[in-house]
């Protein structure tokens, strides 16, 4: 069943202890950052993960990278449970899953030469040493659009976009198959964003990497993704191929997100359709469907039962009671 799937996450859950612990050290409350998240990424595909800040998208990335251990759930790399691995096998596996973080500056050690910052993964993994490292760093830098003499400089001598190129080079030098991009462009100027996004897409075309691309920016997600997953308060509410999602969003939350994007059209001077209220705290998640206090189409059932995901089209899954039982409810589709 997992033919062509690189990464599969099943029922991932991560709770962080929140607030003061009780008198006897028992935790009173938990921040439910990731609360039952499942998805998969196919070979050579980009899955965009979109949601507001604090919805748990970055935590999902951390769980895949092994920077946090999930409280429940599994992560499968080509069918193999990577959380069960230990020691050398774990290190070898981790090489296949790399990351590029949001802030290009703090992702680079200010006191480390670019050559070492890009080449050290080869050395610590015993993949190359000495002159071979230099050669491969040079080749990798060329691939991300940097020159060989950049090897002997320090991060502060580069612009934000160049620094992010260095980070991409570091992530890719060990030849991973799957890369998590955690908002890689949100700290960059708009003009530079496009360059980095195109670089990321080019590299995928040439090398066939698979990506999980985390962002809160719908236009960025639309630009890079093949499929998109929408996250709200620690859950994925809708997953669909990119075109499908942007043309016919099904979940009321997805629709609200789309409506909130400002359109560059002076003729349509209508106020943005905004959701009422704020995102509830992930410590006190509403019962039933977690979106119901803000949902414009809320029904009685939403306040009591959590909606299970249903398939409403090819590869298009929605977790919403509006689509339950009806299969494909054309009447509810908004124009």
């Amino acid at each position: 069943m997992d033919e062509g799937v690189v990464i599969r996450a099943e029922g991932l859950r991560k709770y962080f202890p929140a607030g003061a612990s009780g008198l006897w050290g028992r935790r009173k409350a938990f921040l439910r950052a990731v609360d039952g998240v499942s998805f998969h990424v196919r070979e050579g595909e980009t899955l965009g993960l979109v949601g507001e800040s604090g919805c748990g998208k970055s935590t999902v990335g951390m769980l895949l990278l092994g920077l946090h251990r999930p409280d429940a759930g599994r992560v499968l790399y080509r069918g193999e449970d990577i959380l069960a691995l230990e020691g050398e096998a774990k290190r070898r596996m981790r090489r296949n899953i790399q990351v590029v973080f949001q802030d290009p500056q703090s992702s680079l050690d200010p006191r480390m030469l670019v050559k070492k910052a890009v080449g050290f993964p080869l050395e610590v993994n015993g993949l190359a040493r000495g002159a071979e490292v230099t050669r491969r760093v040079e080749a990798m830098l060329a691939e991300v659009g940097l020159r060989p003499e950049h090897m002997y400089r320090y991060p502060h001598e580069f612009s934000g976009g160049q620094r992010q190129r260095i980070n991409i080079a570091r992530a890719l030098i060990t030849g991973p198959r799957f890369v998590v991009f955690d908002e890689p462009t949100s700290a960059l100027d708009v003009s530079v964003q496009a360059q980095i996004l195109n670089l990321v897409k080019d590299l995928q075309k040439r090398r066939g990497y698979s990506y999980l691309f985390i962002s809160h920016d719908l236009s960025v997600i639309r630009h890079v993704s093949h499929r998109v997953a929408v996250m709200y308060l620690g859950r994925i509410v809708e997953t669909a191929p990119r075109g499908d999602l942007f043309q016919t969003p099904r979940h009321p939350y997805t629709r609200a997100l789309m409506a909130a994007v400002p359109k560059p059209d002076p003729a349509r001077r209508q106020p943005l359709a905004l959701l009422p209220g704020d995102v509830p705290s992930p410590v006190h998640i509403p019962p039933g469907c977690r979106f119901h206090p803000r949902c414009p189409e809320v029904m009685d059932v939403c306040r009591e039962t959590e909606p299970a995901p249903v398939e409403v089209g090819p590869d298009h899954v929605v977790a919403c009671h509006l689509w339950h039982g009806t299969g494909f409810d054309a009447r509810r589709r908004s124009a």
Binding site: F101, Q102, S106, F120
Partner: peptide, 24 residues
């Protein structure tokens, strides 16, 4: 974040202490 990046890249804790923590 560069510490997290180093961990993901497979660096050991000893390596991180001597190449990232102490130089800084």
């Amino acid at each position: 974040p560069f510490i997290a990046a180093a961990k993901v890249s497979g660096a050991s804790h000893t390596w991180i202490v001597f190449h990232h923590v102490i130089p800084n």
